[in-house]
């Protein structure tokens, strides 16, 4: 049950929202479309749902031309960012809607619909709230109802547009795990759009990174992290520090020390190199970039430091709570040495 997207291009009056986009969603896969706002990810999702038409390209589902079908015929379960629940219908009526509107010859019997609704209510753990109206539910509950409503039509693909966008941080984490579990239980191919890299890496089997309507990289979360295809992907996946170094082979030479370098392409000579906060080593007497401690803050399992070098560059580094870094105080002088740097040609 795989979905193939080939050479999709879509432009609105003045800009290209999608430029020659191709990818494949395997059967049962949980795929994330990740990108900043304006990268075209929502446009792509709407094209898949049949709510917009591409200018060129093809979308096929198991060989069937999806673009020839309209939104009603594609049997795609879509969960909208605003949830788009029908507010004059109860939770049960919302979930049953997609079954009730089928032509009478395809429509399940009343009892079947009822049973289906009950099983979905059980799945989303809202068995007792079936008679409520959406206005009487919390944000997280509404989101789950929207999902159940989409699942009710036994969708061939499930599409979610920023599924956690409107929720606060705590609920978000909870629902994330829950959504993954639902996906594993139902096994339905799922594509979701997000601008939150943490969410994408945490949830998805594979991530499609979009920028300005083009695909930057497709890969498993670890691949993206370990082998980012571009500086954009590297930057988008988290904070990093940028310095200049002389690159030769797999090594970056700094003033008085070197560090192993992951180089994409064949690049030599002076280059901007990047390193992650946790790919940094601190020492009292070098070698490394000399800096003064600006701030020491806890960041979850780690300690986050900000250091300012003499030329004003600010480095961010992360260390374990029980490392030497925990002995440092504000304004202490310390040396930062990157232990792994990334070099991109662009």
């Amino acid at each position: 049950m795989s979905l193939t997207v080939q050479n999709i291009t879509k432009s609105f009056s003045d800009f290209a929202a999608l430029d020659n986009v191709s990818f494949e969603a395997h059967s049962g896969e949980f795929l994330a479309l990740l990108g900043p706002s304006g990268s075209g990810k929502t446009t792509l999702l709407r094209l898949l749902a049949g709510l917009d038409q591409p200018d060129s390209g093809s979308v096929t589902f198991e060989g069937e031309d999806y673009l020839a079908l309209n939104a009603r015929e594609r049997r795609i379960g879509m969960v909208f960012q605003s949830y788009a629940l029908f507010r004059h219908m109860t939770v049960e009526q919302n979930i049953a809607f997609g079954l009730n509107v089928r032509p009478s010859k395809d429509r399940p019997s009343k009892a079947e619909i009822k049973a289906k609704v009950q099983s979905l209510l059980k799945l989303i753990q809202l068995e007792d709230l079936g008679k409520r109206f959406p206005s009487q539910l919390s944000g997280g509950q509404r989101q789950r109802v929207a999902l159940a409503r989409a699942l009710a039509i036994s969708p061939r693909i499930l599409l979610l547009d920023e599924p956690f966008g409107a929720l606060d941080a705590l609920v978000r984490k909870d629902l994330r795990r829950w959504l993954r579990r639902i996906h594993d239980e139902t096994g339905v191919t799922t594509i979701f759009v997000t601008h939150d890299q943490e969410e994408a890496l945490d949830l998805a089997d594979r991530v499609v990174v979009l920028k300005d309507g083009q695909i930057e990289q497709i890969g498993k979360p670890l691949e993206l992290y370990r082998k980012p295809a571009s500086s954009f992907v590297f930057d988008f996946l988290g904070t990093n520090n940028q310095v200049t170094a002389t690159v030769s082979g797999a090594e970056a030479k700094f003033d008085g020390f070197t560090a192993p370098a992951v180089v994409s392409g064949e690049l030599t000579g002076p280059q901007v190199v990047r390193f992650r906060p946790f790919d940094a080593h601190l020492s009292k007497d070098g070698p490394g970039f000399k800096g003064k401690v600006l701030s020491i803050l806890p960041a979850g399992a780690n300690l986050r430091l900000e250091l300012q070098s003499e030329d004003g560059t600010v480095f961010e580094t992360q260390h374990a709570h029980d490392s030497d870094a925990s002995d440092l105080a504000l304004n202490d002088t310390v040396y930062v040495k990157p232990i792994k740097v990334y070099v991109f040609g662009n």
Partner: peptide
């Protein structure tokens, strides 16, 4: 809300429904 209408559409409702 246009999304509510689109939701009905993706769930298989005709424009009349």
């Amino acid at each position: 809300d246009a999304e509510v209408e689109e939701a009905a559409l993706t769930l298989g409702a005709t424009p009349m429904q």
